[in-house]
Design a protein around this nucleic acid. Structure first.
Lengths: 150, 150
DNA sequence: ATAATTATGGATAATCATTATCTGTGAGGA
DNA sequence: TCCTCACAGATAATGATTATCCATAATTAT
């Protein structure tokens, strides 16, 4: 059993544990999420699942994503135009985002927990989801940008 | 001359320097941005400027905001539902954002520059605008959340 | 076991921030 | 003064997200 299968079973187990129904559409969407390598958007997931369920609407995709977010099995990454989702690393973590081609990759970098706690005390805020989005240019788009002037 | 006036003059000077025209609408918008204390959204700015220019449309507000972003005089903070703007601290800085009432405050916290540089090298990305959004609950909303159960 | 009741999944249609397109106006040159 | 051109501004479209409504599956009582 490979990774996507393990993750698929975890997600299904989590849904069951919370007494959410396992409809065929929902199960298929979970399978797609577990199998996705990158950080798909709701539209991308919708486009894929349409192959199996041609009538399925965006709203249904959003509802299941919302459920999975609520039980902390999927991380939402809200970007400028839309949101993308990570169903394999649900804990908040930084991302590098290309502003030109929209490619997203994980960026390992950790916030100093001590500073965060001090910030909570100073502000009175209770921090729940720290999101670090590092906007910039991916290697390919830096190339193309230079070619413009060559 | 107080702070908003100083900032207003800086913004006007920056627009002139880049040969952008100073239409009455634009000047008034810049005045609002310089005078705004918090982190207004495009809609909020539009609502305010409508008092002076009742026919002014959203698009016009967006265009001037885009110009000011391009010359690095306004920082865009892109949130889940919409973008907010900071015309007084245009360099990227962290924010604490209440997910319940949407209140935004600055949160002083700095990314380790050394780690950032290592991340750039490892990934090949060129980081241009690091955005740290700390989602959570403001003090007031924590109160109300508890009251629900009292 | 069956029918009634209720909860919840799913699809349609609306909402709202943002942007593309088009129109009009003002600056600069002949 | 008239002409040309760039760019500001308004209108109308786009597209992600969500509210609402309908249908279906689970649950309970008889």
């Amino acid at each position: 059993m490979n990774d996507p299968d393990i993750r698929f079973n975890q997600l299904i187990a989590a849904l069951k544990e919370h007494d959410f129904r396992l409809t065929p559409q929902r199960v298929e969407l979970v399978r797609l999420i577990a199998a996705s390598e990158g950080h798909p958007s709701a539209s991308e997931l919708h486009a894929k699942i349409r192959r199996q369920f041609p009538t399925m609407s965006h709203a249904t995709v959003y509802k299941t994503l919302t459920l999975l977010k609520e039980i902390n099995q999927v991380l939402e990454i809200d970007l400028r135009n839309d949101s993308h989702y990570d169903g394999n690393r649900p804990e908040p973590h930084p991302h590098l985002i290309c502003t030109r081609c929209n490619k997203i990759i994980d960026g390992d970098l950790s916030l100093d927990q001590e500073s965060l706690r001090r910030l909570e005390q100073a502000s009175g805020y209770k921090i729940i989801r720290p999101q670090i989005s590092l906007y910039g240019l991916c290697p390919e788009c830096q190339e193309e940008r230079s070619e413009t002037f060559s």
